[in-house]
Design a protein around this nucleic acid. Structure first.
Length: 828
RNA sequence: GCCGAAGUGGUGGAAUGGCAGACGCGACGGACUCAAAAUCCGUUGGUAGUGAUACCGUGUGGGUUCAAGUCCCACCUUCGGCACCA
């Protein structure tokens, strides 16, 4: 940032009476000592669980993103505290994971050492932020007393049948040398390092999130989350309602296909199997003359990487197997093809192809010279093939003439009757793959015994400790596999020789339940006390980035529901309300990154202005949920604002005197105050910090004007106003306000004060300015006394010279009065 | 390709269908000062006019309404998500 030097010179000219640095550290120490941010279980009936997504302990210091997440949310939490809630706002570290291990591979520094060091630095920075974090409940997921319970969670899932092992094609990142879950693959690339993913056949642990697909979808209606996020989850779950249809294969096997368009079933021209489909081998046996071609195609499909394979622009390829299937309704023979545009992992891995009414099937049929049979006609128009919309059925036997919707139902019913299929729901969501071939994670608490097979580690033997002395340089195998001391164990069932599972759990497993641990973070008998947790949860407000919409936020919902079904918790959803902060971009409008060279560090600003001013600017300069490009134009202005408050406060202290009646000057200040309180109360609740601060500024402006203009100040009134001002700014600039609160002679903490309440009566004015329109055009602004009827208001404005002139000689056809705002006279 | 969100002064951003541009930044003018900084007081959407004022203005084009930044339709641009899901 080349402007820094200039900025420094310019800004150092702002004179602070208050030395923010020492004021901040003073209050941080006092708050820590008085334990005022430690949750008091006695007040559990007034609890408010405010949670920010915990952070990954990276080597870099806190960045603007952390600040933007934690600073404003702390303001929300402090505000709620002043409203009388017992706020629980914990903080911790998502400490396992790939970056620490990759860093270790590069530098040789052990992940445990670098992680601990990073945590120490970040903890200090987080403390310096001056947020109300309850450090007594801190969690680090890499510590034994935490991952012991992560392993316990895995065992419970296993007992319940929600954790299982299977061989399957998985996403393999060649650079990170591990498997990733579908959610962690973005555009066929690794979420972390950007490498193009490969597909690999491996035996892996999976969590059965698909068992909860329907509930994860339907319960979205119950939670107060951004609609955008709910929609993303909805699409990710991808429910589609259709039909399963059985085709008899000439080998005597059944080919089941899934379709959302059973109304097109009479138009089936061929059947397609995914190249990985288990029936392929049998078809080869039945048609040895095609075996070579089939093998060649299967190999071709297997070698294509995901980017190529998933590209819609790619030309359709496939191979005829030589075999035929029998259409369940027409009894005609249709050819069976293999083609990789059919995915083995979705539905049944087989598709009925209707060339006339599906773009992909149409393109494939044209290429391979397969006939096209039209069975849907566009209602009242010419049908151009492929026609993929709904229409009227033709060439469909007894179903001719039905609409798409009628036909889908009728054909499904018919298929059920003749035993050839029926209605079926499919989800796009896949089970969550959780095995990672990496070192820095929670070991999977499973044992492989030659005699007994897979055996869970008994709960009493937890945790399965992660050894320190491990060669973590990648070999394509799990690093733990080559640690003899770790791997060697005895089978808990038969006592024979056995070995441990060498893989570790996806770190998203660790973060899928951490919010449950915070309230009972030191419990060494159980993961949590159900009695306590059922009172503390769900989290009332959860704040974090939207990039977790289909990962962490979905996993956490799943785990909560699974735990509920096992009886460990009694609520359905972990996060009642969710708020996403926006993203602060670099000054150039791009995402901040080292490669863009546009990273803005909070440190320079905090050094100059203190953490209060930095947080105040983050709240004032951006719309919270939008974010935007960084610019430091406004940071000076918020510092100036605070400076003005301080001068006002100190000056008012010097006043002495009594009080007199409220004149219009006092009434005006009072109005501005109550207007501010009313709006701040509403806006902070909505995380609309910028408008809240605007109201504070208006109030300060009003006080300053009062101070400057009124010679005989109503001192009692004025000092009360100043005291309220300090209370009002407290959640926004906590150290600063606490200091002023003491300067004003108070002994208690300002955060033990109540946030001022507004009085509707103070907001009632004697008269209000109305915009008066004639035929919807503004002609005048007129002060109208309170309490007039609509008719009186009309008469009042009509008597006004400007209005009288504008309506002279015309008749009033209509008069619209919007109370407190506007009058519209329609004349003609 | 599909789904979603957004587009407002020089600028960050405000506006339960009811006075567009709150509150700031910047700019301009003034007070204070030997001078500057800081501070304080004004002005500040555009065009025309000395002026009161008039007209035009929320991406573009239509529409609904007494009244549209806000609702509806079409389009353009940007961003986010999904992407051969049958």
């Amino acid at each position: 940032m080349e402007s820094n030097a200039a900025v420094r010179v310019r800004f150092s000219e702002v004179i602070f009476m208050m030395d923010m640095k020492s004021v901040e550290s003073k209050w941080q120490a006092k708050w820590e000592k008085s334990k005022q941010n430690v949750f008091n279980k006695k007040n559990i009936d007034k609890k408010l669980y405010v949670l920010e997504m915990f952070s990954y302990p990276s080597g870099a210091k806190l960045h603007v993103g952390h600040w933007y997440n934690y600073g404003p949310t702390d303001t929300y939490a402090r505000f709620k505290r002043m409203q009388g809630y017992e706020v629980f706002q914990p903080m911790g570290f998502d400490a396992f994971g790939l970056p620490a291990e990759n860093y270790a591979i590069k530098t040789g520094i052990h992940p445990k050492d670098s992680t601990e060091k990073n945590i120490a630095t970040m903890e200090q920075q987080l403390r310096n932020m001056g947020a109300m974090f309850d450090w007594s409940a801190e969690i680090k997921t890499c510590e034994e007393n935490y991952y012991k319970w992560t392993q316990w969670l895995f065992l419970q899932l296993y007992k319940k049948g929600l954790a299982y092992r299977k061989e399957s094609l998985v996403n393999w990142c060649p650079s990170c040398e591990t498997v990733l879950a579908n959610e962690q693959v973005i555009d066929s690339k690794c979420e972390r390092c950007g490498s193009v993913m490969l597909r690999k056949d491996m035996t892996q642990w999976f969590l059965k999130i698909t068992d909860y697909a329907e509930e994860l979808l339907s319960d979205l209606d119950k939670i107060d989350w951004p609609e955008k996020t709910k929609l993303m989850q909805k699409n990710w779950i991808g429910k589609s309602t259709g039909c399963e249809i059985h085709f008899d294969c000439e080998t005597g096997d059944d080919i089941t296909v899934f379709t959302t368009r059973p109304d097109t079933v009479f138009g089936v021209n061929y059947v397609v199997l995914a190249p990985e489909h288990p029936l392929v081998d049998k078809l080869k046996e039945a048609h040895p003359e095609k075996a070579d071609a089939i093998d060649q195609y299967v190999r071709y499909a297997a070698e294509a990487n995901d980017i190529d394979r998933l590209s819609t622009a790619r030309e359709k390829t496939g191979v005829f197997t030589g075999a035929y299937a029998t259409h369940p309704l027409t009894k005609k023979k249709v050819p069976i093809y293999l083609a990789d545009y059919v995915l083995y992992s979705y539905g049944t891995g087989a598709v009925m192809a209707v060339a006339a009414h599906d773009e992909r099937d149409y393109a494939f049929a044209k290429k391979y010279g397969i006939p096209v049979t039209q069975v849907i006609q566009k209602a009242g128009g010419e049908t151009i093939l492929p026609y993929c919309e709904d229409g009227i059925l033709v060439n469909s036997g007894i179903f001719d003439g039905l609409s798409g919707e009628e036909a889908r139902d009728a054909i499904a019913v018919h298929l059920t009757k003749i035993g050839k299929g029926g209605k079926k729901v499919n989800y796009r969501l896949r089970d969550w793959s959780v095995s990672r071939q990496r070192y820095w994670g929670a070991p999977i608490p499973m044992i492989h015994c030659e005699k007994c097979g897979v055996v869970p580690v008994p709960e009493k033997d937890l945790p399965v400790k992660l050894p320190y002395d491990v060669e973590f340089r990648p070999t394509g195998k799990s690093p733990l596999a080559s640690h003899a001391g770790f791997m060697k164990c005895t089978c808990p069932k038969c006592g024979g020789k056995a070995s441990r599972d060498p893989d570790t759990l996806d770190t998203f497993v660790c973060s899928s339940w951490y919010y449950l641990r915070y309230p009972d973070a030191h419990n060494d008998k159980q993961a949590w006390s159900p009695e306590l947790i059922n009172k503390m949860l769900p989290v009332d407000v959860y704040v974090g980035g939207s990039e977790h919409a289909c990962m962490h936020l979905l996993y956490a919902r799943f785990i909560t529901k699974a735990l509920r079904d096992m009886g460990y918790v009694n609520f359905d959803e972990p996060f009642k309300r969710l708020v996403h902060q926006g993203i602060i971009l670099g000054p150039d409008g791009n995402r901040m990154s080292k490669s863009h060279g546009n990273v803005v560090s909070p440190d320079t600003y905090i050094e100059e202005y203190g953490s209060d001013m930095f947080r105040l600017y983050l709240m004032f300069g951006f719309s919270y949920t939008e974010g935007g490009p960084w610019s430091d134009d406004g940071i000076k202005s918020v510092a100036k604002f605070a400076d003005r408050i301080e001068r006002l406060v100190r000056k008012s202290l010097e006043l002495s005197g009594g009080h007199s009646n409220m004149t219009s000057a006092e009434k005006n200040v009072n109005y501005t105050k109550h207007y501010a309180i009313k709006n701040i109360t509403r806006d902070v609740e909505a995380f609309s910090f910028n408008t809240s601060i605007a109201r504070l500024m208006e109030y300060v402006n009003a006080l300053q004007k009062y101070d400057a203009e009124v010679a005989e100040k109503n001192v009692t009134f004025y000092k009360d106003c100043i005291k309220d001002l300090i209370r009002m700014i407290a959640p926004f600039i906590p150290h600063f306000a606490e200091e002023l609160w003491q300067v004003y002679g108070n002994k208690n903490s300002v955060f033990d004060e109540s946030y001022p309440l507004f009085d509707e009566k103070a907001l009632v004015k004697d008269e209000t300015e109305y915009a008066v329109q004639v035929n919807s055009k503004i002609k005048a602004k007129i002060m109208i006394p309170e309490g007039l009827s609509d008719d009186d208001i009309r008469d009042t404005v009509c008597a006004y010279p400007e209005i009288a002139e504008a309506i002279a000689g015309k008749t009033i056809r209509k008069c619209i009065v919007v109370k407190g705002r506007l009058v519209n006279l329609i004349v003609g």
